[in-house]
Design a protein around this nucleic acid. Sequence first.
RNA 1: GGCAGGGUAGCUCAGUUGGUGAGAGCGCACGACUCAUAAUCGUGAGGUCGCGGGUUCGAAUCCCGCUCCUGCUACCA
Length: 526
Amino acid sequence: MASGNSFYITTPIFYVNDAPHIGHAYTEVAADVLARWHRQAGDDTWSLTGTDEHGEKILRTATANGTTPKEWADKLVTEAWKPLLATINIKNDDFIRTTDERHETNVQLFLQRLFDAGFVYSGEYEALYCVGCEEFKPQSEIVDGTGPFEGQKVCAIHSKPLELLQEKNYFFRMSDFTDRLLALYEERPEFIQPESARNEVIQFVKQGLSDLSISRSSFDWGVKVPWDDSHVVYVWFDALLNYVTAVGYGQDEEEFARRWPATHIVGKDILRFHAVIWPAMLLAAGLEVPKQVFGHGWLLVGGEKMSKSKLTGIAPTEITDTFGSDAFRYYFMRAIAFGQDGSFSWEDLSARYQSELANGFGNLASRVIAMVTRYFDGVVPAEAERTDAELVIHAEVSAASDLADASMEKLAVHDAIAAIWRIVDELNGYITDQEPWALSKDEANRERLGTVLYTALEGLRALAVLLSPVLPEATARLWTALGAVGALGALEDQPLREAGTWGQLPAGTQVSALEALFPRIEATVN
RNA sequence: GGCAGGGUAGCUCAGUUGGUGAGAGCGCACGACUCAUAAUCGUGAGGUCGCGGGUUCGAAUCCCGCUCCUGCUACCA
């Protein structure tokens, strides 16, 4: 392990003030499945997630809750975000918090370097300020006034006129990078994916970039600007740097060289920060830009974008309490083309759980284990003469394995799972065709029966390996039931790219009882 | 308003550079089977391919108009 190519994958860091919902969990699962896949394939894998804890809003909620921002963040990390990772069975290598010293120190180092290189200057930031909110308002919260405020710009929350105020800020010369970014997008089409995301970014950058205000002086919960401690670093500038500070930037150059650059998995809402601002920052600092920025879609609930502000947010535990973490992971990875918007519904979740996991994969495992137990006392039979039917299965398993790996390489997780699932369908059909229960009635068919069941067992072995990144719990149970732990070693040590190689499970291995992998769920949900 | 993407069987979606009678999965109906989580396997029914024009021997696939949906339109997490 850890001998292959570097594969460093990141999720966005959670804004601690948010309430965890299935959108957060979706991003995490996607990154986790990819990380587990690469890790098990022998690539030098590192997966990172974490939390973003600075900014005025956090300061304000902490104060409102009678505590300090750090204590507030500690509480949320402990009570909300780390439990989320456990709920959906995330196996991350690191968890960075923007309040970590390794982060804060090196954000300052990074900023100082940009300053020294002339990419940061002091300027006037002018924007509309809402007295009610006590903050500068973003475009999205500025609306045209009505009634007495006709013709004026008002705050969307307070509906009161906004004041045009100025504040001294430090600016990053992002405008210098317009052409270099466009050249980057042109030279490396895979830099931003999928295509729709790439097009939007290019379209945006073509309009020309302006400089970015990267400091604030109206509050102090953030990383201090190293040469002027009356300012703190703008939260986005701070947050984006987690991807490098977590892997040694500024303090462990060997580790940094080993990991960087990363593949960033992000939601569409924050695509621009990652595909424009972030590479511009890196270029200015003389660092490599990310390997790829992949923007996934939204989860639509009832045809609408799910959001925390509306009441459509669904807590992941609502799903996992009934269906389990494996089903959660499977459902979102299988049902939604990664990169596109996808609609979530309880009906679809239940239907797929029932037909694909319970009746498809789960029942396949049950019937095979049961027959081996009944006809061979649980001992894996030897494979005798192969017929065309077996050769078809061998070819199918091998092809599915290759196709799945190629799909994962393209971050097409849904295609990878669909490819693997062909094995499930083929095996179910094969067993029905070969009728092992009929073969068992005549001792003369003993060898043939053994061959059929061996073929089914080997298919299950391949499925367990290929599906382990998506269904870590169920495949671990299947692996144990197959007796493969003793015969082949731990499931997570099985080389993924060799999963399609036939004949790995030795005859003579003892299988054991298997509880239903995905038990029927009788109660109707909602 | 501008830019981008999309409207294909009940549902979720595929449909290369226009060309055998428009596909998959699920659901549904019928049949087979019984090893298995009342599971499995097979067969079948179901579509004006958003609407209206046009190009073409021929368009879901190209062009024009219309309509509906979604996203982006910078300092919001």
